[in-house]
Design a protein around this nucleic acid. Structure first.
Length: 420
DNA sequence: AACCCAATAT
DNA sequence: TATATTGGGT
């Protein structure tokens, strides 16, 4: 289900714009019963929906004219309701791709096309009319902000819609995915290239952060393996320097890496398991192949995970890479990873023997895949750029050679230019 | 023109 | 908060 909400619209000729809707004065009149009408700025609410300024307009209207609930993936059932809370008049347009596995919404009424003036169930009607309009619903007061009739159409990127998006992106290849092609593949008429571009921008940003974090977590985990397993054996002949990312905890969970609404990804979330013991995860993920990116999603299958946390915020989920601590060792004793300059001493809860963050007793970290280094440059860049910790552990700052040695030990053949 | 990205607006 | 918009750049 796709919900789009023209949050704002400027005045325009109404008649030509409203043809696609069944929302008409009679509906309003029936509902309002008097003063309510006065509080509604019909022009702001519906003006310009079909003025052609945006690609979305014609498409939305086209969809509106199509009865929803069909088998076609491209069909969108829609519901329009208004929410004129305060001066920020809104029109919420919910478009549902019926085959996508609809999400329950108050905006959708029985899966059929519905255009309602006032969704009593959820709309907040402004009881205090501040503006007047004529019989045509024209607003008497000027709308200063959008004289050109531009309106914002908010797309509700539901999990299903996002899944389609991800599918398209992965089918095209992350690098080759461009909005126009994505839009093409998604086959959602209601979306515009701009919608896709905006979402793609966020998607890439999120993915970038996620990859960086995975790399960091992998770095941490592997070093833990390297140094932890060999502690006390004296087998190591190289200087056991420690990357600053080990002294520091992984970047703070918030706000950068908190999953953004639907940004969760099956395989991405799987990566959470690399750094978090299963028993700490709120819900065990369904068994999936180890290399689940891209996930083999079937278009007709339900979402890959029924777990709401899969798609929605993981507020209750430990952030990947975050060190595990017993209750008496709150991670808050760590300084912020964003701290600049030399971090104060004595702030790092580091294993005194191997120099790695400790784990709660009895807990072990699952090892990441061996090819778990999507962003070596980033790792090394971080290693070389961050100030070194004055760890009272006799650890030496890394040198270029040290970085190379570690890369070699980790089987990373790709040598960053900075180290070459 | 399409695309990308960061900043900003809503 | 999530998304759209904008502006500057390629």
């Amino acid at each position: 289900m796709l919900a789009v909400s023209p949050l704002r619209s400027a005045k325009n000729d109404r008649e030509s714009e409203m043809e696609g809707f069944t929302v008409e004065e009679n509906g309003f009149l029936d509902f309002s019963g008097g003063n309510l009408l006065d509080s509604i700025d019909f022009d702001d609410l519906f003006m310009g929906i079909n003025d052609g300024d945006l690609e979305m307009d014609s498409e939305i209207l086209a969809e509106f004219s199509v009865s929803g609930g069909e088998e076609s993936e491209r069909n969108c059932t829609s519901a329009v309701s208004t929410d004129d809370s305060g001066k920020d008049d809104k029109v919420s347009v919910s478009v549902s791709a019926s085959d996508l596995g609809s999400r329950s919404s108050s905006l959708i009424n029985q899966g059929e096309e519905i255009v309602s003036k006032r969704d009593m169930g959820h709309a907040t009607v402004n009881p205090s009319p501040e503006e007047t309009h004529d019989s045509k619903g024209r607003k008497s007061s000027a709308q200063s902000k959008n004289p050109l009739g531009k309106r914002k159409v908010k797309v509700d990127w539901t999990p299903e819609l996002h899944r389609r998006f991800v599918q398209a992106v992965e089918k095209l290849g992350v690098d080759k995915a461009v909005p126009s092609r994505i839009l093409e593949l998604m086959g959602i008429d209601c979306l515009t290239r701009h919608n896709i571009a905006s979402h793609l921008q966020k998607y890439r940003s999120h993915r970038k952060h996620l990859l960086a974090r995975e790399a960091e977590a992998a770095n941490w985990s592997q070093r833990r393996q390297i140094y932890g397993a060999g502690s006390g054996t004296g087998k190591r002949d190289i200087t056991p320097w420690i990357a600053p990312t080990m002294g520091f905890p992984p970047p703070a969970p918030m706000p950068h890496f908190r999953p953004l609404h639907v940004w969760g990804h099956p395989s991405v979330d799987q990566s959470f398991m690399h750094t978090w013991p299963k028993h700490l995860t709120p819900s065990p993920p369904p068994p999936q192949p180890p290399h689940a990116w891209p996930p083999p999603l079937h278009p007709l299958l339900p979402p890959p995970s029924a777990d709401p946390s899969f798609w929605h915020s993981h507020h209750h989920v430990p952030t990947p890479g975050t060190p595990c601590f017993p209750p008496h060792m709150p991670p808050t004793t760590f300084p912020s990873p964003t701290v600049q300059g030399i971090a104060p001493t004595g702030m790092y809860r580091v294993d005194p023997v191997v120099g790695v963050p400790t784990m709660p007793p009895g807990q072990t970290l699952p090892e990441p895949p061996v090819d778990f280094h999507p962003n070596v440059d980033s790792i090394i860049g971080d290693v070389l750029s961050k100030p070194w910790l004055p760890l009272p552990l006799g650890l030496k700052p890394p040198s270029i050679d040290g970085v190379l040695v570690e890369l070699q030990r980790q089987g990373i053949s790709k040598i960053p230019p900075s180290c070459a």
